[in-house]
């Protein structure tokens, strides 16, 4: 079947099997390999992308379901002006090691901050509780999201 999905702002029309998973549409058909996969049971969260502005596990969504919808991936976070504050904060605070969980963490982190610009440590921990990181023990991820909140507030105050 033919589907048209707006990915990172650009319309993409692709011929796919109905069974194709969204994560494979992104990775194998559109070459957006920043979105990863790490399990078969929707538990790990390395595949998180935004679907119409909301984070979802793209391994558990059909590409066909995205026909006519908008998808945003990690590749869309940085702009010509540079890194998104959340990316910058992950770099400053060592919020990543092997980087495999990172795209999913960034997408959820960005979403959380958009809805709640000043989240508590506990709110951050709960927000990423469907996403596993095997390297960082989470602390620096939590710190990075907090730091991004502060960074954004400073920027907002200046603007």
């Amino acid at each position: 079947m033919q589907i048209t999905v707006t990915v990172n702002g650009a319309e993409r029309t692709v011929e796919v099997e109905p069974r194709l998973l969204l994560v494979h549409l992104l990775r194998d058909h559109l070459g957006l390999t920043g979105t990863h996969w790490g399990c078969d049971t929707s538990n790990c969260g390395t595949c998180v992308v935004w679907f119409d502005g909301t984070p979802v596990k793209s391994c558990t969504v059909l590409a066909a379901m995205a026909d006519g919808h908008e998808v945003r991936t990690v590749e869309d976070l940085a702009t010509a002006d540079g890194l998104d504050p959340i990316q910058q904060a992950f770099s400053d605070h060592h919020g990543l090691q092997c980087g495999f969980c990172t795209p999913g963490m960034l997408m959820t982190g960005r979403w959380l901050l958009d809805r709640n610009p000043d989240p508590s440590e506990q709110e951050i921990r709960e927000a990423i509780s469907g996403q596993v990181c095997r390297c960082t023990g989470y602390q620096n991820i939590v710190r990075s999201v907090r730091a991004a909140a502060e960074l954004s507030q400073v920027k907002g105050a200046r603007a």
């Binding site: 929707s42 969260g45 998180v48 679907f51 909301t54 984070p55 979802v56 596990k57 558990t60 969504v61 959820t108 709960e126 927000a127 509780s129 469907g130 996403q131």
Partner: peptide
């Protein structure tokens, strides 16, 4: 129930 990302969908 599940986790926040699963709950979104």
């Amino acid at each position: 129930i599940a986790d926040p990302i699963v709950r979104n969908w």
